[in-house]
Computed example of a mutant assay.
Amino acid sequence: MIRLGLTGGIGAGKSTVAKTFVDRGAYIIDADKIAREVVAPGSEGLASLVTAFGDDILTADGSLDRPALAAKAFVDDEQRAKLNGITHPLIGARTQALLDAAPPDAIVVQDIPLLVENHTAPFFHLVVIVHADEQLRLHRLTTMRGVDEADARARIAAQATDEQRRAVADAWLDNSSTPEDLAAAAAALWDERLVPFEANVRARRPAEPIEALVAADPDPGALPGRLTNRLWAIVGANATAVEVTASEPSIELMVTARSDDAAAELGDALADGGFAPVAPGRHRSCDPGKPATVAVVAPT
């Protein structure tokens, strides 16, 4: 199984990519859908919000009045923290339950609008960004969704910049043309990279790099940092250091384990995280678009 983080700016066309992936067999986890589910009528989340903010956050039919909640929850940091303290654990628990239910051979696609802003990119095997220029997104929002222009500009400005998205992207799908072109690009990514990547992780088999995929990296200069952050997310407290030791002809990294026991435990974690064992203390990337070698060393 691999987990893919899917995101993009508002109006970029992320839903087209998500649908394409689902049509090809993706196990989808939609962050926005979960956020709505945990505060649905009759839910524990909604009851907790009413207790915290009052029953005037409800509509006449008993559902959540989101503007009324926002008027109370976003007045200061204390109220915002109160809201997050209620909803975030529920969203996390529901997300984990869905992950636990995923088949062992799944390509899990987690559709997360604020993935970049929430700094969660390293926790995914691969991050896909759907991109469209700001003016094109503005046009889509105002003409296709009926969003007021000032509101649309404010929403775009509140999200991550293109540079911030590119820095965490493993794959970049451009949506400056037609939905059909975007769907075709997403389907090609699925067939040529995601399916082999998942199969390699499940078989604990290193990938043979595919030149075209490697060359398509959205920001090669940021790749060492992406790999370093990904490794930290995998190894966690079992390591004291992750460092890049070489960048040519491919990237090599070294993980210093916290102890001899920790070094032994890291093998499985790295394999599950996308780096297959190739020799004692050595691993290679399972992703045909992201070649890298990882050495694990015991503390000196």
Rank of each mutant, 00 (worst) to 15 (best):
E252H: 14
L227V: 11
N200I: 05
F197S: 08
S176L: 12
T161G: 13
L49R: 10
E243H: 12
G62W: 01
R258N: 01
V147G: 07
A199P: 02
P249T: 10
Q96W: 06
E163D: 12
D261R: 14
V195R: 11
L231G: 03
E192M: 11
V127T: 13
A97L: 11
R230D: 09
A102M: 06
Q135P: 00
I10G: 02
R193W: 00
R166D: 06
L227Y: 06
R80Q: 14
L49W: 04
A183P: 11
R258G: 00
A157T: 14
P280I: 12
D162K: 11
W190A: 02
N200S: 01
A26D: 09
D61M: 00
G274H: 01
V17T: 06
E37N: 12
V297K: 02
H125N: 13
N118P: 10
Q96R: 14
K14R: 10
A271N: 05
E180W: 09
A184T: 14
P103K: 04
G5K: 08
D217Q: 15
I210V: 15
A52D: 01
W190R: 00
D56F: 08
D261M: 14
A184S: 15
P277E: 12
P104R: 12
R205S: 13
L270C: 03
G289F: 04
D162G: 11
G54C: 02
A73S: 03
E265L: 14
S48C: 08
K82Y: 07
I57G: 03
L138H: 06
R284C: 04
V255R: 07
A257W: 05
V128N: 07
E192L: 14
A60H: 09
V242A: 04
L253V: 12
V244Q: 11
V39N: 06
S63T: 15
L98Q: 11
D174W: 09
P220I: 05
A132S: 12
D56T: 13
D30G: 03
L6W: 07
P103G: 10
A150Y: 08
Q110Y: 04
R205C: 12
P277T: 13
P41D: 05
D268I: 15
P113C: 08
V109G: 05
A292L: 01
E192Q: 15
D174Y: 09
V255K: 01
Q164K: 15
Q79M: 00
A171M: 03
A222M: 10
R155L: 10
G13C: 09
I112D: 00
A186L: 04
G85N: 09
A222T: 02
A106S: 06
A97G: 14
